[in-house]
């Protein structure tokens, strides 16, 4: 096994994974409420070939040692939870969360999932559901014949009924996490609680440091396409360099076998 070859190989692997993360970010540049990912690189273990300070003779010591690094790995991907920009849609069931907090969604198996995607709509029962059809938690049902729906910044949902009477029919609540980066993304714009995220702290929007909700707007993806494109160039060049390193070591070994036989 040639360490020089395998070191470069780990570089290819890591850059390849980084490219997958960038590609996913770019693919989601227009996904409502999407939070961009970032890959975290870390150098792998070092091999101590000769200990620095070892005895070279009884009275003298090696002033330098030799440690060989074994390459790089990706230890984690972390989500960037900075606020995306807000676009005006004027849809009465479009919500954006300004500040911290996630909307709570009831999954088909009864567990809760969390999302920043507030493009809500109604199902055939009048329940407020996400684009995937999962109901909001706590559930909000809009009665038939409703003239208009108003959602306040504190999450209170009020309607003007068929008989022109204004009533409050529900309250949207937000969940916050100590370590939101620890939430596990499951696809469909949903995140679920994990051991790393901590338990959800549920509250009324605008209280206890939670953000406020804004009707008629949606939070866009926070992917910065310029950053991603620059990262892509950097990743591509790093990949090429590692590939060049493999070619070089290959040529060295080839030279050895052709010249010594």
């Amino acid at each position: 096994m040639n360490l020089a070859l395998w070191s470069a190989k780990t570089g290819l692997d890591a850059q390849n994974t980084q490219m997958a993360v960038i590609a996913n970010n770019l693919a989601n540049a227009n996904t409502t409420g999407f939070k961009s990912d970032r890959a975290a690189f870390q150098d792998l273990l070092y091999q101590n070939v000769r200990q620095v300070g070892g005895q070279s003779t009884q009275n003298t010591q090696y002033s330098t040692g030799l440690t060989l690094g074994t390459g790089v790995s990706i230890v984690a991907t972390e989500k960037d939870y900075t606020q995306g920009s807000v676009t005006q849609t004027n849809g009465s069931l479009d919500l954006s969360v300004s500040g911290r907090g996630f909307l709570q969604i009831t999954m088909p198996d009864g567990t809760l999932a969390y999302t920043r995607d507030g493009s809500l709509s109604l199902d055939n029962q009048g329940n407020v559901v996400t684009a995937s059809g999962y109901p909001l938690s706590p559930a909000i049902t809009i009665p038939a014949g409703t003239q208009s729906v108003t959602i306040g910044t504190d999450g209170s949902v009020s309607i003007v009924s068929a008989t022109n009477k204004a009533t409050t029919i529900g309250q949207i609540q937000l969940a916050d996490f100590v370590n939101e980066e620890g939430l596990q993304p499951t696809g469909n714009n949903l995140l679920v609680e994990s051991a790393a995220s901590g338990a959800p702290q549920v509250g009324t929007p605008g209280t206890n440091g939670l953000g406020t909700v804004k009707q008629g707007t949606l939070e866009t993806s926070n992917v910065n396409t310029v950053t991603e494109l620059v990262n892509m160039i950097e990743t591509q060049r790093a990949y090429e360099m590692n590939s060049k390193a493999i070619t070089t070591v290959d040529q060295m070994l080839q030279f050895l076998t052709t010249n010594l036989q």
């Binding site: 070191s7 570089g11 030799l66």
Partner: peptide, 24 residues
């Protein structure tokens, strides 16, 4: 070849946050 391994380790870590290159 060992020096090449050190060099390749540096190249592999060209995108590692806070990495410090090793010399040989």
């Amino acid at each position: 070849m060992q020096a090449q391994a050190v060099n390749n380790h540096n190249i592999a870590n060209v995108n590692t946050v806070g990495f410090r290159a090793d010399g040989v």
